[in-house]
Every structure is written in structure tokens, then in C-alpha cells.
Amino acid sequence: MTIYSLYIFDRHCECVYYQDWHRTQPIRAPPAISNKPGVHRIPPPLQPNEAGAPTRESIFSETNRSSLLSNGTIDGGANRTNKLPKGLPFDEESKLVYGVILSLRNMVKKLSGREEAFTSYSTSSYKLHLFETPTNYKFVLLSDPSSDSLRFVLRQLYVGPFVECVVRNPLVKLDSRAEGIDNDQFRAAVDRHMKGLSMFSS
């Protein structure tokens, strides 16, 4: 089983955290006006320098650049050009994920009554797992379709790293729509927790 990505949505329907592990296509950065660097760690767009070769504006290492070359994000030939990854920009993608959750949750409540809860659904290429907290935060995990329910993993993330590194941290703004959960300690704790699972990449 493989775990692909994690989204956390706040009570205002905003994506405040994103992290991925086995994504097959690199994620597209959103437009600058809607970019929230605290939510995700998407590399900044490539900028051509005076010689025409693409460069990074920030501290991107040559190792990461080599990874982009191997993934086809940058043309490795003599005439190197900036190629955008396929798919939607991150802000549009996260809105679609939240929209699917909201629609399916409402459908389950209307068809089955308020006692039933929407927790997951599967397609041929992935399975979505949902855990809602008492304060209306939504933890969403995407895994391969053969996995069992992973709500327990999301609950562990909530009662462990989220409460310790975010809720109890006075420096983190929980209702920040501009920054998201900009906390390196939380990001590292989530990464350790996921990579420590037996099903992480089995």
C-alpha cells in the first residue's frame, strides 16, 4: 500500500496544510496572488537568467534541480525551457478535493440519515480517507485504492503532532487564511509519523 498525500482543511474551508510523498506528477504552484508557502513546499517558479537558462529565485539545491530534470519539468537539452507540470494549480486542486468531500458528506447524510458518516471512497487509482475533528478541521489522506481504512492514522496525527505542534503552539495562527500552518516542527513530525507506518510504501 502507498500513501500519496495529506490535506488539512480548516473550519473556513481553506486548505491550511499539504504534504505529499509518492506523487507521480509534480504539483503545480498556484498563481502568486493565492500562493501560501506555509501550506505547501512547492518550489518557486523557474525564472530565466540573462543567458536564458532557468534558475531558482530561492535556495533550491542542485539535487532538487536534477530531480526536476529527470521528471521532465525542465528540458535537459541544449535549449532548456521552463515546462509547467501537468494538472491543476495547487489552489484549484485543493478546492476540488474539498468540494468532493462536502458533496459526498451531504449526499451520505441525505440518503442514510444523520447517524451515518462519510469516511472514505475509492476510485480505480486512489482512495480518499476523511477524519473530522470536533473543531471542524478536516484531515484528508489519499492512498492507493487497495488500502483499508486509514482514519486511525489521521486521528493519530490529530491527537499527536497537530495538538502538540499546532494547537498548543502560541506562535501558530490557527485561523490564518494567508499563511496556513507554517510550522516546520509539525511538518517534520507528520513526515516521521507517516514514514514510520508499515504501510507507508509497501
Rank of each mutant, 00 (worst) to 15 (best):
S5Y: 01
Y7K: 02
I8D: 03
F9C: 06
E14C: 07
E14D: 12
E14V: 08
C15M: 01
C15T: 01
V16Q: 03
D20T: 02
R28W: 05
P30N: 09
R41L: 08
P44V: 14
P45I: 11
Q47Y: 11
N49T: 12
G52E: 10
S67F: 05
S67E: 13
L68I: 05
S70Q: 07
N71T: 13
G76Q: 11
K83C: 14
P85K: 04
K86S: 14
K86E: 14
G87F: 00
L88T: 09
L88R: 10
L88K: 08
P89T: 12
P89C: 12
D91E: 14
S94K: 04
S94R: 06
L102T: 09
S103N: 13
N106H: 06
Y126T: 13
F131K: 06
E132I: 08
P134A: 00
K138W: 13
V140C: 14
L141K: 02
S143E: 02
D148S: 13
S149G: 13
F152L: 15
R155D: 11
G160S: 01
F162T: 09
V163D: 11
E164K: 11
C165E: 15
C165V: 15
R168D: 04
P170I: 04
L171C: 07
K173Q: 13
D175T: 12
R177G: 14
G180R: 04
G180K: 00
D182V: 00
D191C: 01
R192N: 08
H193R: 08
H193K: 10
M194F: 06
K195S: 15
K195N: 08
L197I: 06
L197M: 09
M199K: 08
F200T: 10
F200C: 04
F200D: 02
